[in-house]
Structure formats: structure tokens, C-alpha cells
């Protein structure tokens, strides 16, 4: 029956430290095969939740199950099924890559023979074959991150938990690590945390937005964007006299606000805010073609997760945070 259970089931999870609540009544589920992003600012409770799921910290109250096993009562079963990369990717810097992965595989209960095969496989998968004999401390951060990912994968876990997997990397390294995570998502359930919005947009199918230990929003990445981009403003650059522009758009239905600014030459920038989430682009095009004006740009601003995040957390900041 094990496979029928969702990969992660969290119910009313709370973690309190003296004078501070890190996680406040969190509930969510992650299905098998999903790639879910935990998004939130620093101190939102992402790492604490992950540590509880990885059986490193106890929760104050609530329950958490991984692959049907309770993290408090059956921690060994849970640990066998997860590959966890803690924050800042701690590694034994004095060890060589292959040696380290072999050591970790053995700790995770793999037999000598199986650990050898698995280490070969993850070295290949994470693009580490060229550096397997190098000392980890002498590798670049990007390679170290791959070693951390390889470690999380080496025992073929059902669930991979990655705490801020791309933090501190340069853009090239970030790209490489992200594409690796995307690839992992095809065969594993992945829960990753980040405070970078674009990372979630690029790698995750679903997002949980965390703020001050609570879930503010949980949805499929694109649904969340769509839901919050309803008030999408339309911007058009049109070569037309200002008065004619205002005349043409003033009395049209569905427009809440209009703004015209002057640009180079004959061009004017027209910004329209819809009243009920309507898409104003066809309307603009209709007016432009009717008047025979020249249109050089027509865009509808699409809210990124970043905007959504700011929108959701606005006004919720309590003093002291």
C-alpha cells in the first residue's frame, strides 16, 4: 500500500523556539513525481520544515509523513527514502569526490558492491566523472553543489529534498544545477526551497509560498501566475496625436485607467489598466487599425512570481521581522 500514499503529508506542523515560532500550523501534501518549490524570504520557515521532514529536528506539534512513514516514529524508514541536501551543502572538504560519495553510500546502507555501481551512476548523472579523484575542497562551488546533489541521489531515494540548491553560484553554475534538478524531476519527487522566484518558475510544477511559518499560497506555478496577472496592464506604443489617442480610448468599456506619455518623434506610450481583468490587446489593435495609425509595440505585463510574492506578503510584515 506504500505506493498509494502521497510522498509528503504534513498536517498542522508547528515548530516553536523560545520566543519565536519558526513554523506555524503548516499543512500540505506533495504527490509522487511532483517537483515542488518552497518559496519564501529568509526566515520564512523553509529550512526548519525541511529539517523536520529529514528527521533532523523534532516538531513541537503536528504530524509529517514521508512515503507513508511518520517522521517522528519511523525516522529510519524515512531517512532511507530521502536524499537530503542541507542548506549551504556541507561536505567533507578533505575527501576526494569518489571517496566521499562511496562513504555516504555506505552510510546510507548500500552494500560495497552496490555502492560502487551507484557511485559510478551518480558521477555520470551529475557530470562529475572528470573530477572524481579531486579533493572536494579544491573544487569550484558549482562542482561542490553537484557533489551534494550526487550525494542526495546515491541511494536512489524516493524523495529528494534540496535546501537552497543554487545559493552562492554564478549564473552559469546556476543554469547547470537547475537543468540537473529539472532532469531529476523526471524520475523523482523533488522538494526544493529557494528565495529566488525565477528558480521556482523554471524548475517547479507547483509552488508553496511561505511567509513567517505559514503558507500564503499554494498552486501550480502557471495557475498562480495567471490568477494574479488578471489585472495585467497593456502598454502600446502608437504613432498618433495625443488628443486623438485619448479621444479613441476614453469611452471604451473595460478600461479603468488610461495614461499617455510622450516618446520620441510622433510616438506616444499608451498604458491601459483593465477594470475586470479583461485582455485589452485586441481592443487596442482594433482602434489602431481603424484609425490607420502605426503600432510598434503592444505588450501585456505578465506578473512574475516576484510580483505575486510581494503582493502576497505586503502588509503582513510584523515588527521584528
Amino acid at each position: 500500500m506504500e505506493s498509494a500514499a502521497p510522498m509528503i503529508e504534513v498536517q498542522d506542523l508547528t515548530k516553536r523556539y523560545p520566543g519565536r515560532t519558526a513554523v506555524d500550523g503548516l499543512s500540505f501534501t506533495v504527490g509522487r513525481g511532483e517537483v515542488v518549490g518552497f518559496l519564501g524570504p529568509n526566515g520564512a520557515g523553509k529550512s526548519t520544515t525541511m529539517r523536520i521532514l529529514a528527521c533532523f529536528l523534532p516538531a513541537t506539534s503536528g504530524t509529517a509523513r514521508v512515503a507513508g512513514f511518520d517522521v517522528f516514529h519511523e525516522p529510519d524508514e524515512v531517512r532511507r527514502r530521502i536524499g537530503y541536501m542541507p542548506e549551504n551543502n556541507p561536505l567533507h572538504l578533505d575527501m576526494r569526490v569518489r571517496e566521499y560519495l562511496k562513504f555516504r553510500a555506505r552510510l546510507k546502507g548500500l552494500s560495497w558492491r552496490r555502492s560502487r555501481g551507484q557511485v559510478d551512476a551518480v558521477l555520470q548523472q551529475c557530470g562529475l566523472t572528470g573530477v572524481e579523484r579531486r579533493i572536494i575542497g579544491q573544487l569550484s562551488k558549482g562542482y561542490r553543489q553537484r557533489v551534494g546533489l550526487a550525494d542526495a541521489l546515491v541511494h536512489e531515494p524516493d524523495l529528494i529534498i534540496l535546501d537552497e540548491p543554487t545559493i552562492g553560484l554564478d549564473p552559469h553554475q546556476i543554469r547547470a544545477v537547475r537543468s540537473l534538478i529539472k532532469e531529476l524531476g523526471r524520475s523523482h519527487t523533488v522538494l526544493l526551497s529557494t528565495h529566488i522566484m525565477s528558480e521556482v518558475e523554471m524548475t517547479c510544477s507547483r509552488v508553496l509560498i511561505l511567509h513567517q511559518g505559514r503558507i500564503l499560497a499554494a498552486d501550480r506555478t502557471e495557475d498562480l501566475e495567471r490568477r494574479l496577472s488578471m489585472d495585467g496592464q497593456v502598454v502600446a506604443e502608437i504613432a498618433a496625436p495625443e488628443a486623438a489617442l485619448i479621444e479613441a480610448f476614453r469611452d471604451l468599456p473595460g478600461i479603468e485607467r488610461m495614461e499617455v506619455t510622450e516618446l520620441d518623434g510622433e510616438y506616444r506610450r499608451l498604458s491601459l489598466t483593465p477594470s475586470q481583468g479583461a485582455d485589452l490587446r485586441p481592443l487596442v489593435f482594433g482602434q489602431v487599425s481603424q484609425h490607420g495609425w502605426v503600432l510598434r509595440e503592444l505588450t501585456r505585463s505578465r506578473h512574475s512570481l516576484e510580483d505575486i510574492f510581494v503582493h502576497l506578503t505586503q502588509g503582513r510584515n510584523r515588527p521584528g521581522n
Partner: peptide, 13 residues
Amino acid sequence: STGTYEALMTTPV
């Protein structure tokens, strides 16, 4: 201090 303790204690040992 290096954090490897967390990595160690989240393996099934």
C-alpha cells in the same frame, strides 16, 4: 560547525 553533522544525522545511522 561545518554542517556535515546534519548530513550525517539525516542518514539512517
